[in-house]
Amino acid sequence: MALLEKVDKNIEARAWQGEIPIQSRYTCGLAGEKFFREIMENGRFAGTHCAECEYTYVPPTIYCERCFAKLDEWVEVGPEGTVQSFTVLLVAPDGTPLEEPDILALIQLDGADSVLVHRLGKVGLDELAIGMRVKAVFKPKKEREGSILDIVHFVPVNA
C-alpha cells in the first residue's frame, strides 16, 4: 500500500496549517541582573573574575565554566575595548536589502577576557579594522530599561 499509493498530483498534496502558541519571558538571572542594572543605573560594565583561571567574564556568569568555582569577585571593565572581528550586514533576515549597512562586531572590553557582541556606529566601512579601538555609547539614562539595547552601539574611540 505504501508503495502503490502516492500523491502524484501536486493538487492532492495537502498540509495542515497551525502554530505553536508560545512566547518567552527570560529573567536576566543572578549575574545578568547585576550586569544590566550596572548599565542601566551607572552606564558601566561589570564582569566577574575567576582568580584561579585568571579569566574575566563579560557578560558575567555566577560560575567559572573552566573550573566550576562560584564567582563573586566583580570587576569594572570597559567602556573602551578592541574589535576582535566584525561583519557588515547588507540584507535583513527576510532577504530584503538594508538601507544602511548594519555592522556587528565582537568587542573585547578592556579588562575582559570574553567578548561581547554589539553594533558599531559612526564609522565608515573603509575605516573598519580588526584591532580598532572602540567605546560604548549608552542611551540617555531615563530611556534605559536594563537591556542590551541600553547600549546604542560602539563607536571609534577617536571619533
Binding site: 529573567t27 538571572g29 543572578l30 555566577i62 560560575y63
Partner: peptide, 19 residues
C-alpha cells in the same frame, strides 16, 4: 514556581552541589 536564575544558573547550582 518562577526562578530568578537562568536555566544555566540553576543547572550550575545543582551540578556544583553534587560535585
Amino acid at each position: 514556581r518562577r526562578a530568578q536564575e537562568t536555566g544555566k544558573e540553576l543547572a550550575y547550582e545543582a551540578a556544583k552541589m553534587a560535585l
